[in-house]
Design a protein around this nucleic acid. Structure first.
Length: 939
DNA sequence: CTTTTGTATTCAGGCAAATGCGC
DNA sequence: CGCGCATTTGCCTGAATACAAAA
């Protein structure tokens, strides 16, 4: 985004008493009169906004038109936020004084636009960067959830329809008309576009699915597993209640635990792996056994954990460094002003980073390029500079004059070489690599072997900050052992640093879970080597996360009642907090911590600014902003009147673009407030809670009928609702459009085939038409003669192609065998059929009749028609799902938000193999859930 | 019908970007 | 009270697979 931005932190502000301590812009207490005022009429702002947003799609989708002001995120700038301690009770001394506003001001990356001090005069200066183009349509995430506090959630009852409807995607046409915010994703998408090319046909998709089974069809185990359970039900759940020994309780009743454990063992079977293609059918329990000692089932054994100490003993082998850089072959050189230059190793490496990215959009991103080039120059200078062929120094001054093409081409060559190796060669390489990594794969935590996650030190490269990250493109430096701190048990042997090096430090801190750490040079962030998601440490905390969310169930009613009440509080801070809670609860917004100017300008609930919300009377709120990862959050949703009114108040002048909506609130305060309800409660818990809650609700609506595949599709639909709620998106693949087109053509082709079959029937029995006119009615989808003709042409071409190819192939083979090749005459003869086809089509077009093949009967033809109809239907649903899901990412919610026990419950209850839904890694990660939940489990 | 082939989809890993809490 | 630290969340990518059409 870009677009308007505000400059100036304070210009319009007068009361900045000491000049450095800004304060909230809003008044402390909300007078009754203001409340009343906001009740009635709608102010200018609201009306104005109406003009800017228009509702287009009948389905309820509304699109923001292109006006710059609507852009969600404005220019970034220094955010001068000050937080004044406000004693709410102290009354309203500061009531009207428009204190300094909290706003995001501009500073546009490089040019600091001087005048920041001026008021809003240049609010609208668009950033130089890319202007808006098309925007993606974001489906409205609202998902109906239980009517806990009935009146409270506007979307729950009557209103819910709107957003729900909005879930439907708009038509492409409309899509392209719109313009507006360009999200990071879109930018990326565009970039790829260029690199794309051919496509192909094939349909599929939709079902997103299905995998594994095909080959090892066997795999019945899971089924069996379910059958079993059902011992005493006792599980009215509430595992919480059934605490066992110590502090923490187990996920499920202990009783069935043992049984459960056993069962699921067969269930899990060795997933796939199946290195050979296809047929590996090992998978027997026997194999499971060979799997070394039995693993630690922490979930059956919850004792410890006071929370702070994470381990007692810890042994590991440290980290794996990337291989040192090796100079490129002599003939591969970057050019400057057309002349090959020799770079010092360090600089060549950096140039290579860029050279390898020439075909990405980064290479044409001005900020990226600028940051890269600056760092490149610095590094070059540090290492002696570039030399010309004559050995003389060459000063690299201009990016424009640099030509990285030779490097790019070299890398491409390398890639091709690798590809040419074939599966065999690559496998060998992989074995080698695996061997080098072997020792790092596992560590021993409290004596148990646990998998390590990211033991590889991140290699150097160019920083790929997402969205409009000010630092994107900077050189991410190589990490030296001297920067790496090792955390390991006191008793353990400290892994040796690479020869000639030493560690920054070696510590023995058992209150943290990391094995190694270092500081990254771009943002100064700290990186860690931690255990894999399948480890007990991660598993336990995941479990706790979900238990915490379930615990929230007990408090949610009260919390909702409270914030409903506080929506009317006369204290601004309380009212803002209540309003924020409403949004977090209803829309699953993230908390919205403050960010710095050297990060991309993205927001969450608490950091929403004036321009991110538009109010449309009577109670529609349009959210349009960039959230985490610069993913656009665009939603038009009704809210309860009090919230609408509050937002109006929070946007009231003098607040304007750049100012915080919740200027009396921040995440710390919000979370502190939440702690009062329940220890450990924070804003993010609401996301988990609402996601899992929604999933439970959705799953409950699924009927236990149909094929496994259908049930799986139903699950995915539920999953999708959650993903939409959480605004989890993905970029539409660059090939999406072509694939859709192709599929459409294919469907039409099928329809044409159907038409021909019907015509054949009529040739056999002309009187059928009278008997069943409906059946022979022309298909409206392909009544276009033009199209039919084109299609016929392409069919003929295809056939010709096929015959020719086959001919050539045969010849090739003959040649190999040193036999005589076929003559061209042979080919000609074979191509005779083409002539026949043409004639046939011609006749068909003229008379509308087709001679059936020999031996055809009406019955046979009808059978074929039926088959084709099935295929058409299948293709159509597939196409629909593909289109509907193109921007929705299901994975994130599956991995992070949906309590895995829900999935396990679903699978057991409906006899769907867990493998269908949880891939190998997820099955490992969620082993605790698989072994502890049964078909009656409830979130 | 089975095998082959070529592509689309899924998986698993990578690392950036959030949250949240305590010093 | 702002920052540092630890941990969770999230999108994307390259490699591995599955799938459907062709042979």
């Amino acid at each position: 985004m870009h677009g308007a931005r505000t400059n100036g932190t304070s210009s319009t502000v007068s009361a900045d008493t000491n000049g450095t301590t800004p304060g909230p812009i809003s008044i402390n207490k909300i007078p009754k009169s203001l409340d009343r005022e906001m009740d009635g009429k709608f102010d200018k702002m609201a009306i104005k906004s109406t003009n800017r947003v228009r509702s287009i799609d009948a389905a309820g989708i509304s699109l923001v038109n292109g006006s710059v002001e609507d852009s969600g995120g404005l220019g970034r700038g220094k955010r001068k936020v000050r937080r004044v301690p406000i004693k709410e009770s102290s009354g309203s001394e500061d009531s009207d004084a428009p204190l300094n506003k909290r706003r995001r001001t501009s500073n546009g990356i490089k040019k600091e636009n001087g005048v920041k001090q001026e008021s809003s005069s240049d609010d609208d200066v668009p950033l130089a960067k890319k202007s808006a183009a098309k925007r993606r349509n974001v489906p409205s995430p609202t998902v109906k959830r239980e009517k806990k506090p009935p009146a409270l959630l506007a979307g729950d009852s009557s209103d819910s329809d709107i957003p729900l409807a909005a879930v439907k995607l708009a038509k492409d046409k409309q899509r392209t008309e719109q313009k507006a915010v360009k999200t990071a994703k879109e930018i990326r998408a565009e970039e790829n576009k260029s690199a794309t090319a051919a496509g192909t046909k094939r349909k599929s998709v939709g079902n997103a699915n299905t995998s594994e089974p095909a080959k090892k069809a066997g795999k019945a185990p899971p089924k069996k597993a379910n059958g079993v359970k059902k011992e005493e039900s006792s599980d009215d759940d509430v595992p919480l209640a059934k605490r066992r020994k110590n502090v923490v309780q187990k996920p499920v009743e202990s009783t069935k635990k043992a049984a459960a454990g056993k069962k699921s063992k067969d269930v899990d079977t060795k997933p796939v792996a199946a290195k050979g293609k296809g047929k590996a059918k090992e998978e027997t329990p026997a194999e499971a056994d060979e799997e070394e000692e039995e693993e630690y089932k922490w979930w059956e054994n919850q004792a410890e954990t006071d929370g702070t100490q994470k381990w007692t003993t810890l042994t590991h082998n440290g980290v794996l460094f990337p291989p040192p850089y090796e100079l490129l072959p002599k003939h591969v050189k970057m050019k400057y002003t057309g002349v090959e230059v020799t770079l010092p190793l360090e600089a060549e490496e950096v140039a290579g980073f860029f050279g390898a990215m020439l075909d990405t959009q980064h290479a044409s991103n001005a900020i990226f390029v600028e940051n890269f080039f600056k760092d490149f120059q610095t590094i070059l200078k540090q290492h002696g500079g570039a030399k010309g062929p004559d050995g003389k120094n060459i000063s690299i001054q201009s990016f424009q004059k640099c030509d990285f093409k030779p490097m790019y081409e070299y890398f491409e060559e390398k890639k091709a070489e690798k590809k040419a190796l074939g599966t065999v060669g690559r496998k060998a390489l992989k074995v080698e690599k695996d061997k080098a990594e072997e020792k790092y794969l596992y560590c021993y935590l409290d004596g148990r072997k646990e998998k390590v996650g990211n033991f590889r030190v991140e290699p150097p490269g160019l920083f790929r900050g997402r969205g409009e990250h000010p630092k994107t493109g900077m050189v991410k430096a190589r990490v030296q052992p001297e920067q790496v701190t090792i955390n390991i048990g006191k008793e353990a042997t400290v892994p040796a640093p690479p020869p000639g090096h030493k560690w920054a430090d070696v510590i023995h801190d058992n209150t943290v879970t990391w094995l190694a750490t270092w500081k990254e040079n771009i943002n100064g962030n700290i990186k860690y080597v931690m255990l894999a998601a399948t480890s007990s440490l991660k598993g336990m905390s995941d479990f706790k996360k979900f238990e915490k969310a379930r615990e929230l169930k007990k408090h949610i009613d009260r919390i909702r009642e409270d914030y409903a009440r506080d929506l009317k509080s006369e204290l601004m801070a309380d009212r803002q907090r209540a309003t924020a809670m409403y949004l977090i609860d209803k829309l699953a917004l993230r908390a919205g911590n403050e960010k710095n100017d050297d990060e991309a300008d993205t927001v969450g609930c608490c950091s929403l600014r004036y321009e991110h919300i538009t109010l449309e009377p009577p109670n529609i709120v349009v959210f349009d902003f960039l959230g985490k990862d610069s993913i656009r959050f665009y939603q038009k949703t009704p809210v309860i009147p009090q919230v609408f009114k509050n937002l109006k108040i929070f946007k009231k002048a003098p607040k304007t673009r750049g100012d915080m909506i919740f200027d009396r609130l921040d995440t710390t305060q919000l979370n502190k407030h939440l702690q009062n309800y329940m220890p450990g409660l924070s804003a993010k818990v609401f996301r988990t809670y609402n996601a899992s809650w929604t999933m439970q609700e959705q799953l409950d609506e699924i009927l236990n009928q149909g094929t496994i595949h259908e049930k799986y599709a139903a699950y995915n639909l539920a999953n999708k609702k959650v993903a939409i709620l959480c605004n989890h998106q993905r970029t539409v693949s660059t090939t999406h459009e072509t694939m859709m087109q192709r599929q459409e053509d294919k469907i039409k082709g099928l329809r044409y085939q159907k038409l021909r079959l019907k015509r054949m029937i009529l040739s056999l029995e002309p009187n059928r038409k009278k008997k069943n006119p409906a059946f022979f009615k022309p298909d409206p989808e392909i009544d276009d003669e033009e199209w039919i003709k084109e299609h016929q042409v392409s069919l003929i071409e295809q056939e010709r192609d096929r015959i020719t190819k086959k001919f050539e192939k045969e010849n090739e083979k003959l040649r190999e065998n040193r036999e005589k090749e076929l003559k061209d005459k042979e080919l000609k003869e074979r191509l005779q059929v083409i002539k026949e086809m043409e004639a046939e089509f011609k006749a068909e077009n003229k008379t509308g009749k087709i001679e059936p093949k020999r031996g055809a009967t009406v019955e046979k033809l009808e059978g074929q028609i039926q088959k084709i109809e099935e295929r058409i239907k299948k293709q159509e649903t597939e196409a629909q799902v593909r289109e509907d899901n193109k921007t929705v990412a299901l994975g994130t919610s599956k991995i992070n938000y949906i309590d895995p026990r829900l999935t396990v419950m679903f699978c057991k209850k409906y006899d769907v193999p867990i493998e269908k839904i949880f891939a190998k890694t997820l099955r490992d990660k969620f082993k605790w859930a698989i072994e502890s939940a049964d078909e009656d489990w409830k979130f």
